[in-house]
Amino acid sequence: MFEARLAQSAILKKVLEAVKDLLTEATFECSDSGIQVQAMDNAHVSLVSLNLRSDGFDKYRCDRNLSMGMNIGTMTKILRCASSEDTVTLRAVDSPDNIIFIFESQNKEKLAEYEMKLINMDLEHLGIPETMYSCVVKMPSQEFARICRDLSQFGEAITIACSKEGIKFSAAGDYGNANVKLAQTADSDKEEEAVLIDMQEPVKLTFACRYLNSFVKATPLCAQVKLSMSSDVPLVCEYQIGEIGHIRYYLAPKIDD
């Protein structure tokens, strides 16, 4: 028996919106410690790593480990049927063919059940080693989303250069070029508005806009985003999900031939 309940479906709705552009299907691995998803986009350029800890759920029970292949499009449609304040419960038997989503209104007067067929999937897992990054930047997630959107108008790629002075985003294309510099904030009274840079060595990396613009769909999950970068390795873009877990996106850089 697997059962996981969240008091408000809003978190799960936001998580689905944050992955649906990148993934068509994914395996949800459920164990005593929680729910984990690791899945690459079809082009194998980016990877989504989602972790929801069991202690972050209002109720969590997982009698034996389950790997459930889910169609992300269908799951997104089902979650859109829930109101943000509805309680959501995920339920499956031990060797499931289906998973059931149960939405209950706050006043308990409406109860909706949606059953979704599971799919058989080959589990592809990337071994990602613990990495010390040359630059780790924390910045407001809305600012990052804004910069990705604005610079995407100028080119297909954004170059991120990080030094002690700050972080610079730039894009160049046929119509011109653009760059946005953010300095490290002097006083971080408001934690959510802070730009913090932890730099060992300066880095300069180039990434495809279309993936960055998919990652920023996670913006409603967290006020801050963490970008971890080292030369010639994938970017890690991380959003905390309240007290329950995190979503990390990995993105392979574009490298000069």
Partner: peptide, 14 residues
């Protein structure tokens, strides 16, 4: 122009 790399060039597929 820079070339888009594949993630599997950086991490092993298990």
């Amino acid at each position: 122009t820079p070339v888009q790399n594949d993630l599997t060039e950086f991490y092993n597929l298990a």
